[in-house]
């Protein structure tokens, strides 16, 4: 699998992307220079057809990404129901662990899932993976409920003008997420408990900092490499 090597060197990666794009899609040289990361207009093709490359065994996006894109681009209710069936029980698990009562948890799940439907246009699979995107909506909602305040948020990055997808980038993120999930699965029960507490807001900042048993760096390094690539794209946009 070449991706693992190439993500270590983003510049090399960009070069390799360019070569592949020229070879596989016969785009003009000017278009390549102008738009390294965007695929040509999709013309209503399916997501699979839109994908620029095939990486190893991974030939399609995860079910969750597919559903999310159908919701975003086609307001597909069946896909939304699938997202609900996948995420609502997990959100419930998370909220109950977080000390929410059943009724309050249901209210938050309803708000979060409706936000997923309503804010779908701001989902960008080149920058975030579906679970992480929904996690963040859920955390924000929980904070709203608990503190009744609008929390400070970084300025949004502009959404790309076109909905075409750089499949390689999306698959790259999904691969990193797989690695991250296996890293989490390998934690001891104590470590996992600590990580959950840290990300569910049950540890203060100083507790996170002081907690030597918290494998924050180790875990995050699994995802860091993949997301590092995003930096270079963001630079071009600002």
């Amino acid at each position: 699998m070449k991706v693992t090597e190439s993500i270590c060197d983003p510049q090399l990666d960009a070069v390799r992307k360019t070569c592949m794009m020229v070879k596989e899609r016969h785009i003009s040289q000017r278009a390549v220079t102008a738009r390294l990361k965007r695929t040509p207009p999709s013309g209503g093709k399916t997501i699979l057809e839109r994908m620029s490359v095939t990486l190893g065994q991974a030939t399609s996006f995860s079910e969750q990404t597919e559903w999310m894109l159908k919701v975003r681009d086609a307001r597909d209710r069946t896909a939304f129901a699938s997202l609900f069936d996948h995420f609502a029980p997990r959100l419930r698990g998370m909220l109950m662990k977080n000390g929410f009562g059943a009724a309050q948890a249901d209210d938050v799940i309803q708000d979060v899932m409706l936000s997923v439907w309503r804010k779908a246009s701001s989902f960008n699979p080149e920058r975030a993976e579906v679970s992480g995107w929904i996690f963040q909506i859920a955390r924000n909602r929980q904070i709203d409920v608990i503190r009744k305040e609008r929390r400070p948020m970084p300025e949004d990055l502009a959404m790309p003008e076109s909905t075409d997808i750089d499949g390689e980038q999306v698959l790259g993120i999904e691969q990193e997420v797989q690695k991250l999930r296996s890293a989490i699965a390998r934690l001891t029960p104590d470590q996992r408990d600590l990580v959950q507490k840290a990300y569910l807001g049950e540890l203060t900042h100083s507790e996170i900092q002081a907690e030597t048993g918290l494998p924050l760096g180790t875990i995050k390094s699994r995802i860091r490499l993949g997301l590092e690539r995003l930096r270079f794209e963001m630079k071009g946009e600002r």
Binding site: P89, R92, G93, M94, G132, Q136, A138, V177, I184, L230
Partner: peptide, 24 residues
């Protein structure tokens, strides 16, 4: 910003990992 995205992704991986509790 990329680092923040990494932390959000960790949160997502934890969410994915939670024991599902069925909803009505």
């Amino acid at each position: 910003r990329a680092n923040l995205a990494a932390h959000e992704t960790v949160g997502g991986a934890l969410l994915h990992d939670f024991e599902p509790i069925s909803v009505s």
